[in-house]
Write a protein that binds this DNA or RNA. Sequence first.
DNA 1: ACGAAAAGTGAAAATAATTTGCATCGCAAT
DNA 2: ATTGCGATGCAAATTATTTTCACTTTTCGT
Lengths: 287, 287
Amino acid sequence: MDIFATLLQEKERLSQSESRIADILLNDFEFAVNASIIELAGKADVSPPTVTRFCRRLGCESFSDFKVQLARTAYVGMRYLKPEPKSQEPVDVARDIIDKAQNALFLLHRSLDLAAIEQAADRLAAAGMVYAFGSGGNSSMIAGELQNRLFRLGLRITSSSDHGMQLMLAAAAKQDDVIIGSSFSGRNAELVRALTLAREAKVPTIALTQSGSPVAEAADIAVPVDLPEGNNIYRPTSTRIAYLALVDILASLVAYRVQPQATATLRRIKQQLVVHRDGDDRQLLGD
Amino acid sequence: MDIFATLLQEKERLSQSESRIADILLNDFEFAVNASIIELAGKADVSPPTVTRFCRRLGCESFSDFKVQLARTAYVGMRYLKPEPKSQEPVDVARDIIDKAQNALFLLHRSLDLAAIEQAADRLAAAGMVYAFGSGGNSSMIAGELQNRLFRLGLRITSSSDHGMQLMLAAAAKQDDVIIGSSFSGRNAELVRALTLAREAKVPTIALTQSGSPVAEAADIAVPVDLPEGNNIYRPTSTRIAYLALVDILASLVAYRVQPQATATLRRIKQQLVVHRDGDDRQLLGD
DNA sequence: ACGAAAAGTGAAAATAATTTGCATCGCAAT
DNA sequence: ATTGCGATGCAAATTATTTTCACTTTTCGT
């Protein structure tokens, strides 16, 4: 658990003086990481001991421990508090894109529901056949990626981005199959229809989507991905990166279930394949 | 420029005592961020003043400034120094994957050659027609992504993952066209052939690949992506994430060249499209 | 090879930052 | 009204950091 999360969680229960300190952290973070306890206390209009107590309350040993922890998580964790730079300068564009991507990963990590992911991995590993659904450039890529990752593990899988096809596949699926759907917004009505159809036929379903959304409700196992809206609309790439990482996690867990003992051996085999090919994208083989 | 980079850069020029401090930072980083100057000095067998001077030398105000900066970059920047966790526990798998992904982005950011990217963006924006080449699951995805991103900006573009096709397209390309190829390893011999063919016909070429590699040499503009090998082989996803971010950067810069004034307007239009559709993956439209 | 200048280093003193102990204040419950 | 508790700041104590200065080693020109 990082401090920033703790801070948000404790925020309500803080005293008057302490919330003033919290405000400074949230608003003028740059100042906060660089300030001494005296400067910080001064700006918050409290005494240094209050700052020390504040730090302890948030689970730190001391003020300097606090600063280190703050600096640590903040590198990626607090970027989204910043307004958009809006500059068209390459340096800024690059920085902005990388920040957003790292931040999306950070938020993904925080919002991960490991229990749900494990359940999903269990189901996938045991499935007779897997159908991966996703539409639109983004989610269809994720569906394709699922296929790409899981077929290598020996799973039987196909993917579809076509709504009509999804319905037919869902109708044809058997009870030991699994349908896994992806939707960034969670509001893909057609996907909801396919999942509902599957549910009626008692075919297990998994959704990678925003928690609490229609798509999430329609699936047996909802693996939540909750990223702030801002991220989605203007920078779809960063959301996509988070989804890719999620698929990576899921596929790794499925791999451990399918080939529990194979980790070490696999790596050795991979290395061989990799060394002898010497073509492009050697890692494809080695994945 | 972050401290870790500065440290690696200055490493050679450090004095005996100073290198001992550097070693501790590199080897027992956890200790270093949490230690007081006295503890750190003790472990390195030097006096506290030497530590202070060491910090100054690396461009910091003071020891505490140094610690903050260190903690900051280290959050993602030094993860790759850690050995693999090897645990199959979901928490560890997730943490590992997210770390690697963030780290790949961090390294990408550090190795970005903005000048090359700008040149590439200039060329692309001015091209009569763009051909995006990439083979293997990874690079072909990148080629597809380039097409996906650039056609929306009004560019004429097609992509191909087929070597034979790439050769034919390269042979058919005109001098005001652009060929852009992606190769993670830089050792895709077929891609090199296509790029060479294009060069002979004076068709401008761009490569997204490892610097100094055959593919990089074969292209007019090489946009380097240098990630440590370890990242590639076992976790292709993280490398792919870095490439996706790079495409994102490149596409954004092309957008500014093609529609220099449109940024603000575009966003407003996007928002409209987005609000009225309410389907899945609204961001697709809005991208 | 010699010696002067420069750079590197640590001990101790000086300074600054942080924490502790304690007293006070304000508020809520009795 | 009064007791008790948590919140707070002051001042002292502690601790951490930096500066100063003297000493040592290295470097470089002669």
